[in-house]
Design a binder for these strands. Sequence first.
DNA 1: CCCAGAGAGTTCGGTGATTGAACTGTCGGC
DNA 2: GCCGACAGTTCAATCACCGAACTCTCTGGG
Lengths: 187, 187
Amino acid sequence: MPLPRDYSGQTCALARSMEIIGERWTLLIVRDAFCGVRRFGEFAAHLRLPRAVLTDRLTTLTEAGVLERKPDTGRRDVYVLTPKGIALWPAVRALTAWGDAFYGVGSGPRRVFRHATDDAPLADDGRCTGCGAPVVVGDILVTPGPGLAAAAEDDDPVTRALARPHRLLQPLLDPSRTPRSERGSHP
Amino acid sequence: MPLPRDYSGQTCALARSMEIIGERWTLLIVRDAFCGVRRFGEFAAHLRLPRAVLTDRLTTLTEAGVLERKPDTGRRDVYVLTPKGIALWPAVRALTAWGDAFYGVGSGPRRVFRHATDDAPLADDGRCTGCGAPVVVGDILVTPGPGLAAAAEDDDPVTRALARPHRLLQPLLDPSRTPRSERGSHP
DNA sequence: CCCAGAGAGTTCGGTGATTGAACTGTCGGC
DNA sequence: GCCGACAGTTCAATCACCGAACTCTCTGGG
């Protein structure tokens, strides 16, 4: 009842989860947050969703305690995952693995998750296939897999940065280090 | 583009998954299917969603290969999970665990998943805390947890059956065994 | 044969969410 | 002061969802 779209009367914990992250775009926003996307404009550029919807989702996620809005080094705020948001990683990983398994190209997954300390890929259950240990989110490296299409003329810098190896939870772009005068100077 | 609600242009496998199971109600339908809910009326009674939406979701899931519609012993058809649908279990489990962790009552989870062969509860990663082995879906027993509210005057038999211990993927109700003349005879 | 009722949808008007495009406001740098 | 980047807000059109009522088919009983 209190939530925007409720599944009232469900005794099931899944229904509670879906009230928070079951709306359109929400889980993609969370996924981008795992990959280090942090600013309004970065989310908007990568997801190409209506800005009003993005405003709504970021507000909802912040109020739910999944994201936290905090001041950046620059003038704008950033949205970063809280521990509660980071706890969504197993769900995001499982759904990503399912999509790769059933909707990937024949050549393999689009992205491979690796254990940053030994570079071995992760198993489906989130353990490292090298050392066998469960891997914490901050130690996961995302690398392009064989199924990842070559970068199109998809101009936005976020999509391009996501196609390069990067560590989860680390800022993907750092706008404070590339001020306006240096950005966009390459035609 | 071809799918009902597309996240076009996403290179991310999660977006593919969300096109299939990201719509409202869809994942709850899949969850019920794991618990052995199989018939139109059972889904409708438990989820209390508009019947037109249920029709649409069952059709979509069937076309996507997540469910299969097959004749029952009786006159009506049943919808059962395919291997592709069963592959969604890690995602359903992860989201259920998240909901229990952050939206449960203080006393604990609503439901406990156990390994049917040794009755030990499952860890968050899906392994059995008793024998340590990964547990296949058909060997999971769902038992009421401390956080499960007592059955309300929630009349529908599906909700009541879900509150009792049951094994995943086994039919929850068997309407062919309780013909009309014996059903509903208790005021 | 006729009827009643269950089950599985379909139809339909009202309501709310989503979309894309245009607009506003604000700050920093030139 | 002016300009452009950024982060939203506003708005009309479209789409999805809701709940209730309706249809259609099959089954069992009399």
